[in-house]
Each structure stands twice: as C-alpha cells, then as structure tokens.
Design a protein around this nucleic acid. Structure first.
Lengths: 344, 344
DNA sequence: ATTTAAATGATTAGCGCTCATCATTTTTGT
DNA sequence: ACAAAAATGATGAGCGCTAATCATTTAAAT
C-alpha cells in the first residue's frame, strides 16, 4: 500500500547493474569497483534501502545452534527465566537460530562438566550461561573464547573471563536499595541485620557490601548485624538468628532463604522486624500478603533471559557485537500491593 | 547441524504428494480430500512440522499498515513509549507490517479528528491508539470495528467500545498501591491528601477510588483530603494546596503534576509530607534524589507500547486473536535507589 | 606483444512457502 | 450412456536475497 517498497532490484534497475552486485556492495563482500560501489551506496541511502531480513535469512540458510545453560533450582525463579527464553526462541527460530535449554544441578562441579561437554561435543556454535560460580568457569570460558566459541553470561557473571557480554543485575546496587527500603519502611530506624549463608557467593557479597555502604552513609543507622544461616542445620540456625534479631528493626535477607526467615519471623509475637529480601515465589507472595515480608527486590526475569539470547542472536546471526559488555537490568521493588504482577 | 529441518517438502516427499497440497492442508484452504488431509496432518504432527515464518511472509507478500496514535504530551512519558514501539517496529517491519506513528494534541477534539481522518483515508488496515478520552472515542471505535477496521487501545482504555484489546495498567490498583506506600513510608500515619486536577479523567478517578478504598480498609487512617489543582492558575492553586497539606503526613499526586507539587513541598520548612505520585521524568528523578518525592509508581512504558503493537501484528498478520481482551501491565515502584533504571 | 592473473560484473539456482493456474479424476445430472 | 460440473491434486512462478559459477574486461608479468 502506498509507496513502493525498495528492494535490491530497485537499485539494480536504476543503476543498470545486477542485484548480485548490489548485494556485494551492501555486504562489502568485495569484487566491485569503488566507483560502482559508491553509486550503489549513494542510491541505497537515497532510496533508504534496507535489505529484507526474511529474504536474507532464507537465502543464507545459515543455521546456528546455541546451548542455554542454567541451574534447575530454585525452580520458581528459573521457571520464569525459562518462559522469557522460550518466547525469544519462538521469535528467532524462524531465522535459523536454534537453542537447546540445558538445566544443570547447582553444584559448580556438575555445571563445569556440562559446559565442557557442550564445548567438546562440537554441536553448538555458542553458549549462553548463568554460571553457578563465575570463578571456576572463568578459565573454561577463556579457552572457549580463544577457540572462537562465543560465550554469554547472564544473571550471574564470570567477570574475570572475557565472555562476550553479561546481562544481569548490579548486586551491590541491589544491596543499597535494600538498605534504602529498610530505612524507609521502618520509619528511619537504627538497627538492622543482614542474613547471608555459608555459600557467600559473589552475588551475596555484593549485596552485603551495598547494604553496608548505604548504612555507613546514613547517619541514623546505629548498627548492622551480620548473621550467617547454616543451610545444613537450618532449624538450629534459624533459632539462633531469632534470638539475634529481637533487638533489630529491620532484617535484610541477602541469601535465598527469605521464606524460611519469614516463617521464623512470623512467630515473633511483638515488634516483628521489617523483612526485606529478594526474588519472588508463591511462598514469598503469601508472606507479602500476610505482611510478614515488607518488600522484596526483583529483577525482571523474562527480560533477562531474553536479552541474553538476543545478544547471542545478534552476534552469531547478524555479526553485531553487543553495544555494552555489561547489560545491567532493572531492580524492581515488590510489596503487597504490586506482588500479583510478579506472579505467573 | 544435527537433525534435518523439516519443511513442507519433507512431508510432501514422504507422502508422495506435492508441497502445494501440504500447504493447502496446513492452512486448510480446502480443495483436499479428507483422507489426504488426515495423512498430512498426522505426518506434520509426527515430524513436528512448523512452517517457516520467513518464507511464509516472503511468499505471502502481504503488506499491512497500521497507525499508532498517541498524545504528544507529556513528552518524557511518550518518548519512552515511542522507544518501545520503535523497537517492535524494527522487529516486525521485515514481515511486511508497517506502522505510522502519529502524535496528536491532547485535546480529545483534535484526536477524534485525526482518528476520523485515519479511518476515512483508507490508507490503514488498523489502528493502535491511546485515547485521550475513551468516551467520545467509543462510538468511532465502534463504527470502525463494525466496518472490519480493527482497533487496539493502550495506556488508556475506551472500555465501552469493542476494541480488539487493551494494554495498560489497572489504575484503581495503582491508587491502592499508592495508598499502601503512603502508609508504609510515613510509618503508619493517619492523615493524607490526594491531589487531582480538573480534568478528572477516568484514569484519575480510578486512582482516587483505589487510594480511598485502601484508606477505608485501613483502620489507622484518619482522613484523606481531596485537593484539586487548577492547571490554569497553577501558582495560586499550589499556594492553596500548600496551606492545606501542612497537617498531613503524606500526599498522593494522582494527576500529572508531581514535579510541580514537589517544588512546592520543597519549600515547606518543617515536617515535609511524604510525596507519592506517578511516572518518571528527568525532573521527577531529581526530586527523588533530593528526597522530596518518596516514591513514584510507573508502568513499564517500553513494554506497553510494544505489546499493543504485537497484538495488532498477531491479529492482522497471523490472524491470531489476542488471548486476553485486557492486558494489564505491571505497576512498578520507583524510589531513590532504583530510579536510575527508569531513566533512559 | 603475448600470456597469465587479477578485477569486475552478470547469470542463475536456490532458500521454504504461497497461490493462481492447469490437469486429472470423481461425481452428478440428463 | 454421455457431457458437464465439482472435487482433487500437480505445476510452476515468484517473494527478496545470497553465493557459487561463469564471462568479460583490465592490469601485471614474461
């Protein structure tokens, strides 16, 4: 309808050359005299020519396979990421970009094994991965990259490696935000506790640092207790924590145990501390509705997974290098009132 | 790589028929005996056949034009929506789906004029629109729909009309959320004010109702003052409001004047009320950073625009009717700490 | 000047799907 | 029984782009 669409043919006709020559120029594949090339380029600009992707992909018959690797737990978290990934897969598969989703046990040992297999197998042209632990993976990523095997990280980085790009949150910033919320939601209180666990991953360290940094900058904050949850002896450990938080106004759960801590806090009869944590699940949703958890900080999981894949797609199919090596995603604040939007 | 891709040809070969017949069956375009049809369908399922979109679009050479209409102000708000829309346009234009962005003055009169022109012009196959006011547009939408001219609303609905679908926030819920934040951020205070303006659009009414409903359910809330901002005599009006909010703990700006109110609140020397409003802009960002505005409630504008367009795309290009008539988008809470993620 | 190679450009066969058109078979009417 | 119509299926020409191959011109080497 309306203005004719401009194709390579349009340009070719106007310049009395063949479409093949036009194509050669557009993708500067060489074999064209500078003079002709100039003319084509000028005409292309004049007519605002853009090659049609559908036709291009069809003709190229390029087929790319990447593996998308992430842990299987916590299920509620990865389920959402998977949804986002699947939507994107739908979008790109007709362009010849194929993705195998591979979930791994969360032990880094297992994950390393899986990744090594993927690279060895020669079945894939690239890897999109959420490293359980960025450190041991760094050298593998490094050797992958050296062998022209592109690797993209998301959700958790392997900063030491030369992965093509990272998509995920800034966890230091997440900690700071938790700090801000803690202060605001307790009515400018003074006493806080942070709960982490023994794993003390990079993510968690960053969160803790962020929270502490915020506390330091805030004059009215009196102290921040650091409490460690023992996942092996959860019950014992929670009991200890319970004793330890009776005198605080706010508790920030930086590890994945928000629901467990919430259950414990629920039993505190008077002056329950304000609870702040991360991520969303059915259980946490309930805790928000019951006013046990005051707020939880989320990152849009749908977006995260799909962006990582899109970057891989652009790189492998369109030879487009990502604009940024670090793609930092939004931190979103979820409370009782908007929690439902974060459930499936 | 690996498993051969299955095309219409694969099926045709295996059944000793032509690809055209396969195509006929797949799109049940008739002209095929039930027996053959069954065989094709079975084989398609067996091989997990899915027609390739690129090839399909290329061959169909269907070209669809829709108009995307929204107000030009407030600029900061629509700029972001436009960004989201443009990204989606990039995604779909190679499938022959073309979009003209048309910004209108915010008077409903003008918008109605523009819409009538669009429909009359016969240049478009559909309309994606943010109605300035859903009511006067309802009858136009109605007649459009009756003439097989599909219309999609977003951001602001025209609920009385039979638009194909709506994408946007639930403003009643937004008001409730504001109420929750007001209570939480003032440390369970009792006295609040809502600021609206004379326009008192559907959106604003809903927000107000939501806030009031929340207040009613909350025993500790003592009163909620309703204050009206006079946009014509802004300065005068703000002065009055200033007098009126000296005794409240929290102010909810339900209209678009968050920054203006913030500037006024800034001048209050002691016991500034906690300010809560909507949307984000450079100015509001600054007010958040200066702790004048405590929180603002946003809807992901990128997503909103692009979803509306995608629904139109699915409907017009893929004959896919939207799963839901009402697509309610997330409400996001923005404070000092995560504000930067909401800026471009 | 002649041979050889490099540079430049045209031709052409698809990619997978759609659809108009044509060929063949089956059904129906008389 | 036959012709005519309806049902069924095959053929083939693209859609716009890519890339291998071939043809021609130009420059370099002997």
């Amino acid at each position: 309808m309306r203005e004719m669409k401009v194709t390579a043919k349009t340009i070719a006709k106007q310049l009395n050359i063949s479409t093949a020559t036009v194509d050669r120029v557009i993708h500067n594949r060489g074999g064209v005299s500078p003079k002709t090339a100039r003319k084509v380029l000028d005409k292309a600009k004049e007519l605002n020519y853009e090659p049609n992707k559908s036709a291009s992909f069809l003709a190229k018959k390029k087929s790319i396979h990447v593996a998308c690797v992430f842990p299987e737990y916590p299920e509620y978290f990865w389920e959402e990421i998977e949804d986002g990934i699947k939507t994107t897969i739908e979008d790109v598969k007709d362009y010849g970009f194929h993705v195998d989703i591979i979930k791994t046990p969360q032990t880094i040992h297992k994950q390393v094994e899986v990744v090594e297999n993927i690279i060895q197998s020669q079945k894939f042209d690239g890897l999109v991965i959420c490293p359980t632990d960025g450190v041991p993976l760094a050298s593998i990523i490094e050797s992958g990259i050296n062998n022209d095997f592109p690797i993209f990280t998301f959700n958790n980085d392997s900063p030491a490696s030369r992965r093509i790009s990272y998509v995920g949150a800034d966890y230091y910033d997440a900690g700071r935000l938790a700090g801000e919320l803690a202060v605001k939601l307790t009515g400018n209180s003074k006493k806080f506790a942070i709960i982490t666990d023994e794993a003390d991953t990079f993510q968690m360290k960053q969160k803790r640092r962020g929270f502490e940094a915020f506390a330091l900058e805030n004059k009215q904050v009196e102290f921040v207790k650091m409490l460690k949850l023992d996942n092996q002896q959860m019950d014992e450990s929670l009991k200890k924590i319970k004793q330890n938080i009776l005198d605080v106004d706010g508790v920030y759960v930086a590890c994945g145990a928000l629901d467990e801590v919430a259950k414990m806090v629920k039993e505190i009869e008077i002056d329950k501390p304000v609870l702040i944590g991360h991520d969303m699940s059915e259980a946490i949703y309930q805790q928000l509705q019951n006013d046990i958890v005051a707020a939880t900080i989320c990152q849009d999981p749908l977006y995260q997974g799909s962006l990582a894949l899109r970057l891989a797609f652009n790189y492998l199919m369109l030879d487009k290098y990502p604009e940024k090596k670090d793609n930092i995603v939004k931190l979103e604040i979820v409370t009782k009132g908007n929690a439902k939007y974060y459930m499936k």
